[in-house]
Design a protein around this nucleic acid. Structure first.
Lengths: 195, 195
DNA sequence: CCATTCATGTAATCGGTTACATGATTCT
DNA sequence: AGAATCATGTAACCGATTACATGAATGG
């Protein structure tokens, strides 16, 4: 074997391998899977996906077959090779950096002392509503999962387990974000009308 | 006035304006302010900051004076112009997109059904500890702030208020992240040793 | 002696977004 | 008639990271 210098696969590459581990998919399918808000904590457009798939194939981690279709364009269906599955497992076992967050709204919160408090509170209530909606969507999907997957949701070797874990994170994240928006909006308004 | 086509300032540019609103600073000071984990929800290296400061100055939003120093290199101290302060306020009043998150650990969680459960649980406990430490650090800083800032912490027009809001978000975020890591590690281990 | 802090810059590279490009079918 | 879905690609650009580059003073 010539594992002389593994060209250190990008995170997007691993994301694609992870989706393909559920079964063969076209580039289009992968783009759907990484589309907001389905890919809660990863996302990419098709213009990034197609070149990356070509790179994965060149590295021997993925192979494709062309599936001709009547009534719609032919598609290239990609699947993991054994090397691809091994690369995915190796990545899973490696340590992970804690993510560096960039969040424009929190940056604005840092500057909120310069803003008009009622206007800022209004913008924050809009965000609270947006996060509330996402939260409700994730909770609905978790309920759907529970019906479809049964005990697969709690068995670590089931693909449902991974989706469940991500959904849980989404639910916790959106709830916390919503609560913070409400707290800050309340604080801004409380100071506006003193008793 | 010739506000024909404002070249749409980058988010980093606004971050720098926001820091300079607290008072004049050198590029080096700004880099410290945007250094992990001081800039909890924004960060940048000096190689990004120096060119951006030049752009802000070219746009008339910032000006600098050179301060000669004995015993250490001279520095360029930057301060907001009235136009810079106005640009900052305009940005604050504009609507904000909800941030798109990319988080490698959550991506791994999606694939965790392919991993060795005890090994994955161990990695998650490491992350839980890292978030626990950040949480403790933020809580300590909030306590320090409360002593230093007094009621400034709750007055929306005080610069302390913005820092307080960001810290609160950091605390909620890290607490939620830690809890999720612990939940997932527990779930992986619970399935390993069935009663 | 070596690492760190202060202090400022440039260059190469990489990852991601937006726009360009094409084209059939199905739904409103 | 126009929009949306399926399907695949390329090119230009922008933001961010990493590495290159310099140099004095301080602390272990």
């Amino acid at each position: 074997m010539d594992i002389v210098s593994a060209p250190t696969l990008s995170l997007l590459g691993h994301a694609l391998l992870g989706l393909l581990a559920h079964g063969p998919k076209s580039g289009y399918d992968l783009a759907q899977g990484l589309r907001d808000p389905v890919g809660l904590f990863w996302h990419a457009g098709h213009s990034q996906i197609y070149p990356e798939l070509a790179r994965l194939e060149a590295a021997g981690l993925v192979r494709h077959t062309v599936v001709p279709q009547a009534d719609r364009p032919d598609k290239k269906v990609h699947e993991l090779t054994p090397e691809g599955a091994a690369a995915l497992r190796a990545w899973l076992a490696a340590p992970t950096d804690v993510p560096k967050v960039r969040d424009e709204l929190v940056l604005k919160a840092f500057c909120v002392w310069l803003a008009d408090p009622p206007a800022a509170a209004r913008l924050l209530r809009d965000h609270a509503r947006a996060h509330e909606e996402r939260l409700a969507g994730y909770e609905r999907r978790l309920a759907d999962f529970a019906r479809e997957a049964g005990d697969g949701l709690h068995r670590p070797a089931s693909p449902w387990f991974g989706a469940h874990a991500v959904l849980r994170r989404g639910i916790g994240y959106e709830r916390e974000y919503r609560d913070w928006c409400v707290w800050l909006a309340d604080a801004l308004e409380a100071a506006e009308r003193p008793s």
